[in-house]
Amino acid sequence: MGLLTVLKKIKAKEKEMRLLMLGLDNAGKTTILKRINGEDISSISPTLGFNIKTLDHNGFKLNIWDVGGQKSIRSYWRNYFEQTDGLVWVVDSADRPDRLEDCRRELAELLKEERLAGASLLIFANKQDLPSALTRAQIAELLDLQSIKTHHWHIEACSAVTGDNLLKGMDWIVDDIAARIFMLE
């Protein structure tokens, strides 16, 4: 009856899920997190550390991990003590084409990670408030989402600044995870 066992039980009992917030730097990960956490978003600097926020949503406890622009972020999700249930991949919809290509490659690499097998994937096409932002369909095309067969995925156009569609996206991922790992009582 070590810590590992205890944590496993707590997770199941309290209906916890772990979401990992990832994406290229300056995609708006921390802004989204602060927004859904009800915090001030007027001053946000590049994330150096990582944050875990806990939020209640539809009876579930979400542990959202925001990993900053770290080079080696592997350590966070490969920690065996907590399984990653969902990935929130944030994209700056107004980014340069070469950055969007980076974004596609990084995402494809990430999904190969064995420890993330089975995790639900939500893509936030963020920064829709900017005039130069690409549409949801364009982002889906550029990221080649159609080719993803290993994960349940969903793309949502949103804006962390206005808060548009954040709830819709989070609803999708929570429902999708719940359907996978929690039994309906």
Binding site: R35, I36, N37, G38, T54, L55, D56, H57, N58, K61, L62, G163, L166, L167, M170
Partner: peptide
């Protein structure tokens, strides 16, 4: 204080 996501938004 675990706030709920929906009320925050």
């Amino acid at each position: 204080g675990n706030r709920t996501l929906a009320s925050n938004l």
